[in-house]
Design a protein around this nucleic acid. Structure first.
Lengths: 130, 130
DNA sequence: GACAGAATGATAATGAGTTATCATTATGAA
DNA sequence: TTCATAATGATAACTCATTATCATTCTGTC
């Protein structure tokens, strides 16, 4: 007897695969575009529904960046930050973190967490003809 | 002969004052609320128009934080980051910056700028009864 | 294979934030 | 003070991301 996200459909398989393969935070429309290569008729509503389900079951988490609609990445990764290519708009995962930034907060403030976003050009956009 | 933001109205004066006095990134509705203490009948449309004008003339800049609508702060400050109180929702300016984060980017990526956001509790929210 | 009902896809509806409209008011040059 | 017109405030309209609706299709159990 099943509960949430109970049936294994081609659409859901494709969406999960795309998120594993691309391995970076994806917007719903990026997921749609990539997953349509596997399931041509895929609709955006299914993408939203599936992403919501993945977040609810804990296997994906939303990634919020300044001025952008949420993207989604698979969960289970350790503390990390992101790089946003200002040319192609893709967001990449960074490894590691320089550490604790509590010292930046004013006296009397209690820092609980932090986010770092780097902006610039990714390799593909710097070297368009490899 | 005047150009943009040409007339000095009570509304515009109040909005500029509020931004100077509070000295932190303010959302349009925060500006409205604060500026209404000076100009009671102030409307939200005027706030949006004035903020847009301030940005166009270069005296204010939009501050984008993850998952939030843009706030606005007066320009001319040096490189800095922000603290977002998760309790009252206010955003505060931080002084200084630990430095360069290019080393976090993958091989072949070119980092041009970075953003840091700290999350936690501000003094007021930690000490409600001073 | 048959069947209950979960899932899908197209699209209408929603919601939050922002902008446009327009009649009225207020600024500032003459 | 007068007057052209910029600015205001109320609110309708718009934008864009997301969700709801619903007829149809598909999954998985029997």
């Amino acid at each position: 007897m099943l509960k949430n996200m109970e049936r294994s459909t081609r659409q859901r398989q494709a969406i999960r695969q795309v998120m594993q393969e691309l391995n970076r935070p994806l917007s719903p429309s990026e997921v749609l575009e990539a997953a349509r290569h596997k399931v041509p008729g895929l609709g955006i509503a299914t993408v939203y529904r599936t992403l919501k389900g993945l977040v609810e079951e804990g296997s994906a988490i939303p990634v919020e960046l300044p001025g952008e609609a949420p993207r989604y990445e698979l969960s289970g990764k350790k503390h990390h930050h992101h790089f946003h290519c200002t040319y192609c708009g893709k967001v990449f995962e960074l490894e590691g973190c320089p550490g604790d930034f509590s010292f930046m907060a004013p006296q009397g403030f209690k820092t609980e967490r932090h986010e770092i976003v780097l902006y610039g050009r990714c390799t593909q956009c710097l070297n368009p003809h490899p």
